[in-house]
Amino acid sequence: MRDDLLDPRAVLLHESAPDREAAVRRCGRALADVGAVAEPYVEAMLERERSLSTYVGEGVAIPHGTNASKGDVLRDAICVVRFPGGVDWDGEHVTLCVGIAAKDNGHVPLLAALAEILLDPDRARALREATEVSDVIKELTA
């Protein structure tokens, strides 16, 4: 995965959220805080989540906006938000969210790269259990 997609300030490893909506908001906020998206993108992430769960298995969700929200993406980026206590994701237990912001069709290679990482049990576990920002960056840019 391109190493310019992940700003270290968008790696939050000790978060908590009472529910899925709050977790998605936290991801959107992380992307907005590093200048990757405009404010409306956060609501578009929630809209996407309400229409189709972004849970992908192994305790991981990949929240992202709707196709209509691509104009609110300022630059391609991801955030990694870890919820050590877990979040109920419509009956699933999520501890790691990887939020995506991508212009045009930029989400396709991003999702493919993430899938490759998350399908490797050792790498997925390393991400879920990471406590240092440098570990997350190493795992995602290896």
Rank of each mutant, 00 (worst) to 15 (best):
M1H: 13
M1R: 08
D4G: 05
P8V: 14
R9P: 09
A10P: 08
V11W: 04
V11G: 03
V11T: 01
L12P: 01
H14C: 05
E15F: 05
A17S: 04
A17N: 01
P18G: 11
R20A: 04
R20E: 09
A22Q: 07
V24P: 02
R26H: 02
R26Q: 10
C27Y: 06
R29W: 12
A30T: 14
L31C: 07
L31M: 01
D33V: 08
V34C: 03
V37L: 00
Y41D: 01
Y41S: 02
V42T: 10
E43Q: 15
M45C: 11
M45V: 12
E47W: 06
R48A: 00
R48M: 00
E49P: 13
E49F: 04
R50I: 11
R50Y: 00
R50C: 12
S51R: 15
S51P: 02
S53F: 00
G57L: 04
E58Q: 07
G59N: 04
V60I: 15
I62R: 07
I62V: 15
G65D: 03
N67P: 11
N67L: 13
N67S: 11
S69M: 06
K70E: 05
G71M: 01
L74K: 05
L74G: 06
R75T: 12
R75I: 11
R75N: 08
D76M: 12
D76F: 11
A77E: 05
A77T: 09
I78Y: 03
I78Q: 02
I78K: 03
I78N: 04
V81T: 07
V81G: 05
V81H: 00
F83E: 01
F83A: 08
P84Y: 07
P84G: 03
G85A: 13
G85P: 04
G86A: 05
V87Q: 04
D88K: 12
D90W: 12
G91L: 11
E92R: 14
L96R: 09
L96Q: 06
L96I: 14
C97G: 02
C97K: 00
G99W: 06
I100D: 02
K103N: 12
N105A: 12
G106S: 11
H107I: 10
P109R: 03
L110I: 15
L110Q: 10
L111S: 11
L111R: 08
A113G: 14
A115V: 13
A115D: 02
A115G: 15
E116M: 11
E116G: 15
I117S: 02
I117G: 01
L118Q: 03
L118D: 04
D120Y: 09
P121Y: 09
A124F: 08
R125Y: 05
R125Q: 12
A126M: 06
A126K: 13
L127G: 10
L127Y: 03
R128Y: 08
R128N: 09
E129G: 05
A130W: 00
T131G: 10
T131I: 08
E132M: 06
V133C: 07
S134P: 01
D135A: 14
D135T: 15
I137Q: 07
I137M: 09
K138N: 07
E139M: 06
E139C: 10
L140K: 02
